[in-house]
Design a protein around this nucleic acid. Structure first.
Length: 420
RNA sequence: GGGGGAAUGUCCCGAGCGGCAAAGGGGGCGGACUGUAAAUCCGCUGGCUUAGCCUUCGCAGGUUCGAGUCCUGCUUCCCCCA
């Protein structure tokens, strides 16, 4: 690709410098648009869960930078397309969600955008859209005549997402096959409604985006553009955002702020620079300084990464609190009452809770069986003392001065159990 | 329409002569070493009121003291022939 392309616009300059760009259909075209100040771009988000997770954060950041550099960002909620299911990057069919689930999910997801983007009616204000608005109203025959005739099945069969399924002789249902048509149509529709000329997305969206550009040409939208971000993996090759307990969610009711902070704090050395560029807005020379810290000093950079990333999503105060909690817990070895807390009723507590059950309640282990195994392996601690007797019961004597019991699994995961 | 294969531990891949809670990986979790890192080494990786009990190999029946394994029917997928 044109890695040697020298952007004139702030938007592309930032994206390029910080490593957001994987492919672009026309660098010069997007650059001119951005430069002239009337770049309006969208990214689609499927409503498959009640919160977005870290995997979508890169996309959200691109919209944020667009806004900061004078463009207009349009997050598109896939209220319609989620009803169909995107086969891209998947080797088997997605389960179809019910409409109620999708609605609930949309509400959960919406919250995140307001943290990263400014919404309103101004020129660069973000506008929330939902493709259910136009997709659910489509008439099948009309759609086929007006839009469907522009699609070449030959072409669609050559798309990576489709080819992969066919090559592996895996089922690709007709409904999924239509997903890309709907996404292409979204692009055209958004162009009509908002004057959008750029669609961004993850690299797995490239095929769908290009199809949208084509469709636009045939339906007379004028030139459309596409830009994708690289697929993010950690330096050791793992997909980002997956932990044992699930994805790294962005909504605080799905993942405590402290855990979110910890996720960033535990970044691998080799990823620190890349993540600072992508997930914080620190100036580049500051980032260059931080990523060059050697040995244990790089931990300072990780703290800054955690602080900045957390502050952007949850606010500066929450980030500071998480940082302080971590400092007390790890550096001073002092109990912080701001650790994630699980409450139990006083009567339940007084009746005597077994250690095994306590760890299950805290969510640190999935079953009493796992608790037993972890105890054998020396992985569970109560008030920082290793648990050795699986038959032990919690009692008032185990309460700390703060009136809680600190349960730990491994060195990093701590939860407070609090009788109320 | 005919013939032949396949479905395994609810993360994935995958072995499995009638005695199986079921080999081996990957991934994940824990321990050691470190810097809350990586790499490496070790342990664990169905559930429970754990010397025991319960539930698992696509679904439903059957044979057997005993079935993931054999038989019958069904579902889904793949291949070959028409």
């Amino acid at each position: 690709m044109s890695t040697d392309f020298q952007p004139k616009s702030d938007f592309l300059a930032v994206l390029k410098e910080r490593g957001y760009i994987h492919q672009c259909s026309d660098f010069a075209g997007v650059d001119d648009k951005a430069k002239s100040g009337d770049l309006i771009a969208y990214i689609g988000f499927d409503a498959t869960a009640s919160s977005l997770h870290i995997g979508s954060l890169l996309q959200i950041m691109m919209l944020r930078w667009l806004q900061k550099t004078g463009g207009k960002p349009i997050p598109l909620m896939g209220g319609g397309t989620t009803q169909v299911g995107d086969p891209s990057g998947r080797d088997e069919s997605r389960k179809l969600l019910t409409l109620d689930q999708i609605d609930a999910n949309k509400n959960g997801i919406r919250q995140v955008f307001t943290k990263f983007l400014t919404f309103g009616d101004g020129k660069t204000d973000a506008v929330m859209t939902d493709n259910a608005e136009w997709l659910t109203a489509l008439n099948y025959i009309h759609f086929l005549r007006d839009v469907g005739r522009h699609f070449s099945v030959n072409r669609m069969l050559s798309m990576d997402s489709v080819k992969m399924r066919l090559d592996r002789e895996q089922e690709l249902s007709f409904i999924e096959f239509n997903y890309m048509c709907l996404q292409s149509y979204d692009f055209v529709e958004l162009n009509k409604r908002y004057g959008i000329t750029l669609q961004m997305g993850g690299s797995d969206q490239w095929g769908n985006i290009v199809m949208g550009i084509d469709l636009g040409r045939r339906m007379g939208t004028g030139q459309l553009y596409g830009l994708t971000s690289p697929l993010l993996t950690t330096a050791s090759g793992a997909k980002m955002g997956k932990t044992a307990s699930g994805a790294v969610w962005l909504n605080p009711d799905m993942l405590p702020v402290y855990d979110y902070w910890q996720y960033w704090r535990n970044t691998e050395d080799a990823d620190v620079g890349r993540f600072l560029r992508l997930f914080t807005e620190l100036p580049m020379d500051e980032i260059r300084r931080l990523e060059n810290l050697g040995g244990a000093e790089i931990n300072e950079a990780k703290k800054i990464l955690a602080n900045e990333a957390t502050a952007m999503l949850h606010g500066r105060a929450s980030a500071d609190e998480a940082a302080e909690t971590a400092r007390k817990t790890f550096e001073e070895g002092v109990l912080s009452t701001a650790l994630p807390t699980i409450e139990v009723t006083r009567s339940e507590f007084d009746a005597g809770i077994g250690v095994l059950t306590a760890f299950v309640k805290a969510g640190l282990v999935a079953s009493t069986g796992e608790a037993r195994r972890q105890i054998k392996g020396g992985g569970l601690r109560m008030n920082d003392a290793a648990v050795s007797d699986e038959r032990a019961t919690l009692s008032a004597a185990d309460l700390t001065g703060e009136g809680v019991v600190k349960l730990s699994m491994g060195k990093k995961k701590h939860v407070l159990l609090k009788p109320v």
